[in-house]
Nucleic acid binder design. Structure first.
Ligand SMILES: [Mn+2]
Ligand SMILES: [Mn+2]
Ligand SMILES: [Zn+2]
Ligand SMILES: [Zn+2]
Lengths: 140, 140
DNA sequence: TAGACTAATGATACCAAGTCTCAATTGCCC
DNA sequence: GGGCAATTGAGACTTGGTATCATTAGTCTA
């Protein structure tokens, strides 16, 4: 859905400079289908500085091109996103593939929760973990 | 709901030794009403080693006395738990107080999700963030 | 097409949270 | 009180991420 050229164009439109390091990071992230860490990218790009990889991935996250995926143990990963609005993930704990879910099941509950607790509810985290079909049948 | 003596007793029942360091960590956690980090505890207990604080808080978590609270930025905190079964949290981003919620709003959605995605869903993270009543009125 | 100007880079130090190792200590049970 | 395994804590290490800052290099303008 994304390619290097379209992202390059969006970066330029928003006033960001097109640098070899940025493009290298974009290219490396586009190669991943599941979730990945910053160090996965770093490992493939020995010429690019650590800080630059972090900065670029933060920038891509802010632009909605990447999103952060929370793993079961609490650590954070990244993945190329195909949704720019609020959504959640279903992560396969076996192969790492990630489904982006369309409906936010928390939305309906938030009003009730606000009423019953007296809180003003501003945000939430929600991620699901499981095993995808291929992984289940592949192991039998 | 918990006090030092009852926890000491549970530790002994389960075959754990009662040591000054353990009791100091337990005592320090019981003083907190909201969420806290391991370093919050460490800071109050200069005589206790870093590894021991981590080990003790992990042990208390396994026993259901503490639970892990996920913050909005993805970092993990701890809090004294009053529920031993599956539950989620509503965290005040202003004062840090934590409500433990009784119903799991994800439970109902999981069957649908499993059917529509073909995943076997084994777990989830869910946390809510907001501002509690006192914090909202206190700031006007 | 050459500056100029500013954004971006990357080496490096730092930080936060947590694990690992291992020799020394100490609860616990007899 | 003694034996022994559980526990401790100093310290090195890991992972994920931020702050600093001198140097480099895109981009815009003339
Ligand atoms: Mn996503
Ligand atoms: Mn809890
Ligand atoms: Zn949602
Ligand atoms: Zn739940």
């Amino acid at each position: 859905m994304y390619n290097l050229e379209s992202i390059e164009q969006r970066l330029a439109e928003q006033g960001y400079r097109i640098t070899p390091s940025r493009l290298a990071v974009v290219e490396a992230t586009l190669e991943h289908s599941g979730h990945f860490s910053v160090d996965d990218i770093l490992g493939r790009l020995p010429g690019v500085g650590r800080a630059t990889v972090f900065r670029t991935m933060k920038l891509l996250s802010q632009m909605g091109i990447l999103c952060r995926v929370l793993l079961e143990n609490g650590s954070l990963r990244y993945r190329v996103s195909h949704r720019r609005d609020h959504h959640h993930h279903l992560v396969c704990v076996s192969c790492g593939s990630v489904e982006e879910l369309d409906a936010c099941i928390a939305a309906g509950a938030i009003d009730n929760l606000a009423r019953s607790t007296g809180y003003d509810i501003e945000g939430h985290w929600l991620e699901f973990y499981g095993r995808c079909g291929p992984c289940r049948s592949g192991e039998a």
